[in-house]
Design a protein around this nucleic acid. Structure first.
Lengths: 110, 110
DNA sequence: TGATGATATGTCATATCTGACATTGCCTGC
DNA sequence: GCAGGCAATGTCAGATATGACATATCATCA
């Protein structure tokens, strides 16, 4: 696994093992995490595209800035339910979301 | 809203208002529910295609038959996290899931 | 009819998520 | 340097999800 993705996961509170990387994590779990990361990235990009701050989004959602930050970081404590609802709240369509879900994780960066 | 979908939602514990139907439910919430229903349907179809019973799937998941039934019914008490993890556990690929997420709700039946 | 297998529903203790708040880190401009 | 706004992180009480169990419904078949 590349270092940037590794860092990404650790920031998100996943505590990736130092050497063996994803040893012990099944392929299914990996796919699930990828989906979550893709949704989180999509949320951030959508917010930035709308020119909103995390605080503004939080107000719109009836939530808090810290929660929005955690959503975008795909933190452990945020569910895909929350990510999906948030994407739709920012105007995403089902096919927008489908694109995020279906995309390969390598092409998501940058 | 058609009667079958209405029944579907009620079975799932959503208690849809009798006359006004989705009055008061935002478009975003509707999209979210549609995604959930699509994932649940996809899960059921995948299980059936594999020729497995809910009990067998439950064993494989380390869960219970009742929980699997609720997943397939898209019951209130099941999250999209659980649905996604379950789909992947039954061998779905990210693009399989993306197809479910992106599809129009009308074409999902039958 | 009963019996069996499969699926659905209700409830509950525990686990996990959620929003809130405080705090910290990170820039950019002064 | 230090304000200012913006983003990230830690913690916590209340809300929601989860698996388990009991039970109910529904077919199919002897």
């Amino acid at each position: 696994m590349r270092a940037d993705k590794r860092r990404r996961l650790e920031r998100a509170g996943w505590s990736v093992g130092d050497a063996g990387d994803f040893l012990g994590v099944s392929a299914e779990e990996r796919r699930f995490i990828d989906v979550k990361l893709a949704l989180a990235d999509g949320l951030r990009r959508r917010r930035e595209r709308l020119g909103l701050t995390q605080t503004q989004v939080a107000e719109r959602f009836g939530s808090s800035q810290s929660r929005v930050a955690k959503m975008e970081a795909a933190h452990r404590s945020v569910s895909t339910d929350l990510l999906l609802k948030s994407l739709f709240r920012l105007g995403a369509s089902p096919s927008d979301v489908a694109r995020l879900v279906g995309q390969k994780s390598r092409t998501r960066a940058a």
